[in-house]
């Protein structure tokens, strides 16, 4: 089996598991403040896991790209501990709050710079903005076959075979490599990275390359921010339970009304 080169795009986000009480909204600054540690977006972890498995099977090299204004290599080094060979941070002041299109453009710049690859994997969507666009736009920009929502990926004679989620179940599809695939959680969780492994990776003198917009050949004019014009807390954040009073019959009546309004 020939070796494969995989590029995984991983986004750093505040832990989406954080409870409601630790999330607040600053409407003035139009920022969501999450009092939680930074993590790798869960679907991107799924993508990394599938990449590592493919590498274990066929051999090859995995490069991880992570883009942001400032990316924490302590968070992203987890990808190296998990089995990635190379981590490249794409850091630039102009990379703050980029919209999906600009994010994809910057990532595409980095991928062109790497040049040689068989698969580009991304999570199906990020755990913070839940937009679900970057992967597919990236595929378009690189003019690759695009497959979304993969739950299983295998390689066969230069082709990639994917089981992708569809509303009725799943579809088996095939495309020639190089290809872009967005990965769904069904592929499985990222393997556990022990603290010992992680610490070893932290202590490693290995320096992590960081590429700026200029390195990627992306002009600041080509980068657009998300264009948020207003940000607010969702109206039903506080849950004050409204107890429906009365006889069981009356209570049922009120409850039925509730269902009607929610319809």
């Amino acid at each position: 089996m020939t070796e494969i080169r995989i590029i995984v795009c991983a986004k750093q986000i505040p832990d989406p598991e954080a409870p409601l009480s630790d999330v607040s909204v600053d409407a003035e600054k139009m920022e969501v403040i999450v009092d939680a540690p930074q993590v790798i977006s869960p679907f991107d972890e799924n993508a990394l896991e599938v990449a590592v498995r493919l590498k274990e099977e066929a051999g090859g090299k995995i490069s991880v790209l992570s883009l942001g204004k400032k990316v924490s290599d302590t968070v992203l080094r987890k990808t190296l501990a998990a089995g990635a060979d190379e981590l490249i941070l794409l850091e630039d002041d102009n990379f703050e709050n980029l919209d999906s299109h600009s994010t994809a453009a910057a990532l595409a710049g980095a991928i062109r710079k790497i040049g040689d690859y068989d698969l580009v994997l991304t999570g199906r969507q990020a755990g913070d903005w839940d937009s679900g666009q970057v992967g597919l736009i990236l595929g378009e920009m690189l003019a690759l076959p695009c497959i979304s929502l993969a739950r299983d990926i295998s390689i066969e004679d230069g082709n990639v075979l994917v089981k992708k989620n569809i509303p009725e179940g799943y579809e088996r599809v095939k495309a020639q490599m190089p290809a872009l695939i967005t990965v769904s959680n069904e592929v499985g969780e990222l393997r556990y990275i022990s603290r010992t492994k992680m610490l070893k990776m932290m202590r490693g003198a290995r320096s992590i390359p960081s590429w700026s917009a200029e390195d990627l050949g992306v002009t600041p004019e080509a980068l657009q921010q998300m264009g948020i014009t207003a940000l607010s807390s969702p109206p039903d954040m506080g849950r004050d339970c409204e107890l429906l009073e009365g006889s069981p019959d009356e209570q049922a009546e009120k409850l039925a009304e509730v269902f009607k309004t929610l319809r």
Partner: peptide
């Protein structure tokens, strides 16, 4: 178009405007 969308797992509501 002013586009209103829940973000951060539904913990915030954001309005976007794009060219």
């Amino acid at each position: 178009l002013l586009r209103t969308k829940p973000v951060s797992g539904g913990n915030a509501i954001s309005v976007f405007k794009c060219p």
